[in-house]
Every structure is written in C-alpha cells, then in structure tokens.
Design a protein around this nucleic acid. Sequence first.
DNA 1: CGTCCTTCTTGAACACGTTCAAAACAAGGA
DNA 2: TCCTTGTTTTGAACGTGTTCAAGAAGGACG
Lengths: 222, 222
Amino acid sequence: MLRVAKSEETRSLIVTTAMRLFTENGYDRTTMRAIAAGAGVSVGNAYYYFSSKEQLIQGFYDEIARQHLDAARDRIGGETAFAVRLKTVLLCWLDIAEPYQRFGTQFFVNAADPESPLSPFSDDSSAAREASIGLMREVVDGSDVKLDPELRGQLPELLWLYQMGVVLFWVHDRSAGQKRSRLLVERSVPLIARLAALSRLRVFRPVSREIVDLIQDLAKKD
Amino acid sequence: MLRVAKSEETRSLIVTTAMRLFTENGYDRTTMRAIAAGAGVSVGNAYYYFSSKEQLIQGFYDEIARQHLDAARDRIGGETAFAVRLKTVLLCWLDIAEPYQRFGTQFFVNAADPESPLSPFSDDSSAAREASIGLMREVVDGSDVKLDPELRGQLPELLWLYQMGVVLFWVHDRSAGQKRSRLLVERSVPLIARLAALSRLRVFRPVSREIVDLIQDLAKKD
DNA sequence: CGTCCTTCTTGAACACGTTCAAAACAAGGA
DNA sequence: TCCTTGTTTTGAACGTGTTCAAGAAGGACG
C-alpha cells in the first residue's frame, strides 16, 4: 500500500505545517492559503483531508490530551495524598498547555460553541472526555482519601468539571507564565480536598447526597 | 439638532432590522448585506454605526440585562427567604432569555473569546457585570439569611459566578423550554442556600474564609 | 448666494474560508 | 500496451465580513 503511505504523509504534512503556523502567528492570522502554500499543496487539497480550518486543531487537541495523560500518570505514581495527586494533575496540564496558550485560546473559543464537535460536552469529544474523567478516577482511587461512599462514584466527574473551570480561567489568564492559574490551582485544590473530606460529616451528608442525585438526574437524556 | 435625531433613527433602524433577521434566521445565516438591504441602507453605512457584526448584538445583550434587572427586582419584592429570592432571579433570567436561545447561543460563543468586548469578564462589560452583581447583593441583603460576616461581602460576586455557570449550562441545553436548565436552578439553589448557611459552622469556617481570601487575591491585578 | 466644514452615505474592492468540476495519477486487468 | 476504476490534486469561483476613497447632505459664516 504505497498509496496509503503517501496519503498519510500528505495529511500529516498539512497538519504539521498548520500547527507551526498557528503557534507562530496565531489562529486568525494564519490563512488556509498560507497553510497550503507552506505544505506545498493546493488549498483544495487541504480541504480534501480536513473538512474545515477548525478541524485542523482537533488533532492538536488530542495530542495535548494524550501528553497530559501520560505525564500526569507518571507524576502521581507512588503519591497517596489526594490533594497532592489532584494538584499534580492540574499543574501538569498547565505545564503542557503553556506553550500553546496563545492559540489555545482560539481553540477554546471554538469549543465554546455547543454545536461544534470541539465542545468538551459533544459526542465527538466523548472519548477524550472519558479519558480525562478516567484520570480523575485514578486520582481518587489511588489516594487514601476517606469519602462518603455515595459521593465516590461521582467525584471523578465533578473533578473533571472543576478542571474545565480551571481551563476556563486559564484561557482568560494573561499573567506571565500563567501564574494566576497556578495560584488558583495551588489554593483551590486544598479547598476541594477539604470539602471532599467534609462529605462524611453528618451535617454535610444531605448536601453531598443531593449533589450526586442532581448530577445523575441532569445526566439523564430525556 | 435634527441631525442627531436622524442619525439615531438610522442607527436604531439598523439594529432593529438585525435583531429581527437574527431571530428569524439565526446569526450565521444572516448576512450584513441582508441587514443593510432590510434596513434600506448601504452595507458601508451599517459599518459606520457598528464596527462589526458582533457589535450588533451588544445592544441586544444590554436590552436583555436591563429587562432582567427590572423584572427580577419586581418579582422578589416582599420575599425574604434567601433561597426563594435567588431562585426567582435565576428563573426570571431563563424566562426572559428563552425566546432568544437560538441566536443567544451564538452570542455566548463570541462572548467566550477573552479578547472580545462581549466577554462577561472584559472591561467593556464591567457596567453590565456590576449591575448583575448589584442585583445579587440585593438578593442577599433583602433576605433574612444568616451568614459568616466575612463571606457576606463576597457572596454577591460568588452568586454572579454561579449565575454564569447556569448560563453556560443553558447555552448547551437543548431540552424543550429549557426545562433541564430550570431543573438545575430549582435543585441547585437550595444547595447553595444550605452551603451558605453552613458557612457559620465552626468546621466550615476555615473553608469559607479561604474561599473569600482566594477570590480577593485572584482579583488583584498584578 | 457661494464657500467651507462636518456628518453621513455609498458601492466597489479586498481577503478570507470554502466548494467543485475537472484533471492528473496510480494500479489492475485485457 | 491500452482501457477502467478509484484516489488524489488542482485552481478558479463563490459568498462572506470588512475597508476605504469618494461623494452627497446639511448647515454656518461671509
């Protein structure tokens, strides 16, 4: 199948060129014509492989997610404190995403569109979403945290939502090295951990139960 | 100044036409050429009054916010229960925004761009944001809720953030009459109220104090 | 009335994302 | 070698948001 190899080569040449230009000049200032020219193909050819300009960044997004999963798993190995595990995972994401913040912003703008396949809530993203939630499950299960057992099953999904919140903050973060986002993580993680621990207290239980129920009800598609 | 009156008339004719076409056909499918033609002016003229297509919806957004402020104030008058007041304000927003959900979605996509003046966190939106936070302050102050006094000052801002979360959910909500969003409000408001009340408990105080501190530190521009 | 100045208005032109009919290419079979 | 079929590639063309040089309209002042 020399044919297939050649085809794959063209495709990857296009996406590589696109990523380079996006990081160099930003998403908006990079034209499809420039990408095609840079890759030495026609503009129509780029559209033969990618149905839109937006589509071009999906591959890039998957790449970041994959890197994060690997690096985070590596870094939390051995650690048993819940707060440390969670903090490590989030800081790790900030580390990996840092070089791309400039055009990452544009990505998240597109992702904000509920109709877009790039939305973190869309069906198209479900694989990536499940993987991220899975990582949060490892964070919980690999730790020695004591929890209301009712909460335990739902916590990974809640933590993923919390992570989406951090990402939202990061997108708006214009501080050097995204240090405000780091500050947010450093100081909100202990809070989360504390709240999770509080879930076992009698006064708190009805609240955490109701949170779990509500999320389950909202998740129902009806 | 007949001149000024004429100018205002043209401006408002353009924005009215735009709103009509947006609601009829959606944001993307409404072209600037169609808006100009519908208003009986040239396309360049539309750009004389509005610097971009996006800008055209800012006026509309202000309109919704104003309506919400009026209606919500009206509806919570007399009521003293914190949870009821909060719930009323949020349901009121859902009522008012309902007819526009279809192209409202597009608005919030644009608002997701941190660079956009439409972003709820931007300087350009600060007036509208302050007004919304002010409404939340009325919700708190007009109620008989007992709170950790440290939390009290910050709570309106927290509630505004919570409202932004509800809006984010609403944007993604495809259920009939946005009943999932209503469900979210109905059931999460009591939780919020309960958590607010818990803020006075000794075990909970360090947590609520730390939340207040964190937000203050993040608000510092440095 | 004529001359300036400001405010509005025009529509052609531009750059971009995207589409599509046509061509070029590759590989098998006659 | 020549045809057939499927894949890949091309670039002109379309529709869009946006810009801009040019002009029209409406006073103010001599």
